[in-house]
Design a protein around this nucleic acid. Structure first.
Lengths: 199, 199
DNA sequence: GCCATCTTGGAATCAGGATTCCAAGATACT
DNA sequence: AGTATCTTGGAATCCTGATTCCAAGATGGC
């Protein structure tokens, strides 16, 4: 009997992700969202609740669509270090070129903003960090199994190290860091972890 | 002949730093500043200009009072790796305990926010990154001169790596990262850079 | 002590924020 | 087709944002 929605909430969320990702939650107005999505205020509120809930939904969507696929690729095939190198290459490519250049990472951005005061947001951040670390850890144990690691390299601490490095890449890319420099930095990190190639 | 200010702009700026550092610029209202400083709106505007100029002044003040002293200690005495280790220890201590626990770094926070759209802010961020990298580079060349570095460690790329690691520490500490974990991560990084102690 | 000049207090302004409300429109089952 | 039920448009609400303005107060040189 009821009417049905005249729009696709899924598509809408993707548009909203872009807004919050680029501008952050505090500087994005509901009016911006109305304009960008073409939706009406009423539809927005009826579907998603208020602005904060919309932000949370967008943040979760970002993780699903952007972060988690990359984490999965990191562990696929137990390739070890090459997978890690590829992960960082893709990361830097997304952060420094194309549509999302200089947007940073929506999750990293959330760390720095006041949005992290919300316990629900905080939970997403912690979960994100855990998943990133775990994926790197898995890749590093695969690397160890394939004897790709230098002696004395602790996979656990190294996973955390690489995770923090990724945050650094995300942050600096938002300020316009040079892709070449970032790639050089990541290469240095992976070199110091990997077995010396000719020695 | 004129009247003089009835307050100390210097002290005021320190109070303002705390506000912007903790909450960011977008979520800090002029009213918050009026309340925290005890100043009147008129005095604020007459002395510092608008909110954005006040933020810039606070950001520069933060660097002068918080960042640059740490950078200086990093290079003092050409101690090399121990100075780097000490730098990260102090960093983690400030980020995870005491008055400023979980505030992160005001400059790192600025990277992620919309404030970095302002060219003046961007310039401060770039300058900060350059100084941090340079200080680390200086410490690493001192380390190299003292034969503290593993063979094949490139001071330049490593300086950038450690700088990005510092950003990562800053970000995660704002989300409540555990100091022990952070210290372990930094130790792993420095171990992989330094000469193996017993081999 | 007086006056030109700045500072201060606090109201006033004006824009924009998020959210709510209701009448009008659309839907699908009967 | 009719109707109960949801969605939609757009105005209305109410709050808080930054900034300005002016009268009143304070200062230091004369």
């Amino acid at each position: 009997m009821p009417d049905i929605k005249h729009f696709d909430p899924d598509e809408t969320l993707d548009v909203v992700v872009r807004l919050f990702w680029r501008q952050g939650v505090a500087t994005t107005g509901v009016q911006d969202i109305v304009t960008a999505t073409g939706l009406n205020r009423s539809s927005l509120y009826a579907t998603f609740g208020g602005k904060q809930e919309l932000y949370l939904a967008a943040l979760r969507r970002y993780r699903e669509r952007r972060s988690q696929p990359m984490f999965r690729r990191l562990t696929e095939g137990d390739r070890g270090l090459p997978a890690v190198a590829e992960f960082f290459d893709s990361l830097i490519a997304v952060r420094c070129s194309g549509e999302y250049a200089r947007w940073g990472c929506m999750v990293s951005n959330a760390h720095a903003g006041a949005e992290n005061g919300d316990p629900d947001v905080r939970a997403v951040l912690d979960r994100h960090h855990q998943e990133l670390r775990d994926a790197l850890y898995t890749a590093l144990t695969a690397a160890a199994a394939r004897a790709q690691l230098a002696a004395g390299t602790d996979p656990e601490a190294t996973a955390e190290l690489l995770a923090l490095l990724a945050y650094g890449v995300n942050l600096r890319s938002r300020a316009g860091a040079d892709a070449r420099t970032l790639r050089g930095t990541v290469t240095a990190a992976l070199d110091s972890i990997g077995r010396a190639p000719l020695a």
